[in-house]
């Protein structure tokens, strides 16, 4: 059963950018795409566990700020060296100006 957590305001995340949020001791990355859609993934790169929060969002790609590991943040797909393991993704809903993160499945 998915539990929806009110995680941040929509305006907390700039267009084509991300923020890191924490809930219950776990970190998540919340993205806002160029089409104004919201997505969520695990907050750390699967390569060397660097926080993605200071990474670069280009279109639908998040690049790790340290080694250029690249993921499609919509699917979590690792896009090649130096990342080989996909990023975990989470469902997101927008309700008004709030962003809800789906946890528990």
């Amino acid at each position: 059963m998915t539990q929806w957590i009110d995680i941040c305001a929509a305006d907390d995340v700039e267009m084509e950018d991300l923020i890191e949020v924490t809930h219950d001791g776990q970190s998540y990355a919340i993205y806002r795409s160029p089409e104004d859609a919201f997505y969520a993934t695990a907050a750390h790169c699967t390569h060397e566990y660097v926080s993605l929060a200071d990474g670069l969002v280009m279109d639908h790609i998040i690049e790790c700020p340290m080694h250029n590991g690249r993921f499609d943040y919509r699917t979590g797909e690792a896009k090649g060296a130096p990342v080989c393991v996909n990023l975990k993704t989470y469902p997101v809903q927008r309700q008004g100006d709030r962003i809800l993160l789906g946890l528990g499945d």
Binding site: E48, Y49, V50, D54, L56
Partner: peptide, 20 residues
């Protein structure tokens, strides 16, 4: 790794928007 990579390296203070 998280401790070493994320917390240990010195990082200069830079305005996030300017860095982006």
């Amino acid at each position: 790794i998280e401790t070493r990579v994320v917390q240990s390296w010195f990082v200069a203070k830079v305005d996030r928007k300017a860095l982006k």
